[in-house]
Design a protein around this nucleic acid. Structure first.
Lengths: 178, 178
DNA sequence: TCGATCATGTAATTGGTTACATGATTGC
DNA sequence: GCAATCATGTAACCAATTACATGATCGA
């Protein structure tokens, strides 16, 4: 699903500004995606032209004006169509795997350091996700909670997998240095 | 690592044409990446201008001419620098997770069908990877073999993870329909 | 007073993909 | 005769990031 469909998905629940959409997106998708204003605002503008959303300008006193976007029937239709569209499995471009592929060109120490660092950053994202638990439990619906659990298990598995690579590298290293 | 660094990585082993690079890339990276001529040829041309590779035109009789690219010292340096550069953990944009997030807008049957289909495509990629085993065992170095094993374990874990989502959906569905 | 939060947007650039264009040879 | 393999490339397009640009208010 593309940015537009995701934005429509959030607008299914209620009207929002671009700024607010960025926020809910960050909270909900932080651990597996990201979105910047540079793609949100142009997407909203275009969807308004296409008739998927309507805009109401709210003049605020002492604060910047806000553009509140509301989904239309055409927008709802476009969203559910996107949701029902078959999605092909996308191959994950992993810079970790790409580097591992060329590890022969690094020294044993560099190899171990690189994998250890990668492992740390995976654990860090795992911790971040775990830290969001209460927030998620309070606001997520059943399926969004399944996403959260999926994420936790995904990072658990990834940690185990990368650890195994690390162990293999350490074994080899020990073999050579002893 | 970007396309250029990957191409340089392959050229570290020996000189090749763009066509051959596409082939070795597809064999080695198929399960987690992809690369098209539309990015290979312009990248080679640019790297030649930058002095990372040199080109020798081979005139062939009865076959199209080939441009054989060879890595230079500057290219080797650029490659090892890219390999040593710290790489941040990239959040995997998963269209499966994105859809799951909005599953409330699908019917129970549609949810189960979508996840079942996704599970099938993961298993398919797993089979493809397993099918490449003999090819990989014959040509891969130690680290490339670790990539292969990482891939197998990754898809195993993914299969288990998505299966768990499916079971959760089926339980709920059974609860309602019985 | 300084940084965060609210709030919107554009321009330049990146890093690709897909489709198009060409054309000979080899094997079924 | 037709598909696949060899071999190179361009043009149009797409989706998104990053940096730039603006500016008020609020709390520590």
């Amino acid at each position: 699903m593309d940015v537009k469909s995701i934005l429509l998905g959030f607008l299914m629940r209620g009207s929002m500004t671009g700024y607010e959409l960025k926020k809910v997106f960050s909270i909900s998708f932080s651990f597996f995606s990201g979105l910047s204003y540079g793609s949100i605002y142009p997407a909203l503008k275009k969807m308004e032209q296409e008739g998927f959303i309507t805009m109401r300008l709210e003049i605020q006193d002492g604060a910047p004006n806000r553009k509140i976007y509301t989904i239309t029937d055409a927008g709802r239709k476009a969203f559910t169509e996107a949701l029902r569209a078959p999605f092909s499995f996308e191959r994950t471009k992993s810079s970790f795997l790409t580097k591992l592929f060329f590890f022969a060109y690094l020294s044993p120490e560099e190899r171990i350091a690189a994998v250890t660092k990668h492992l740390e950053s995976i654990k860090e994202v795992h911790r971040e996700l775990e830290a969001a638990r209460t927030e998620i439990e309070a606001h997520a619906d059943r399926y969004q909670y399944l996403c959260f659990e999926f994420g936790l298990r995904f990072f658990d598995a990834l940690t185990r997998n990368v650890s195994q690579v690390l162990r293999a590298l350490e074994e080899k290293h020990a073999e050579v240095t002893t």
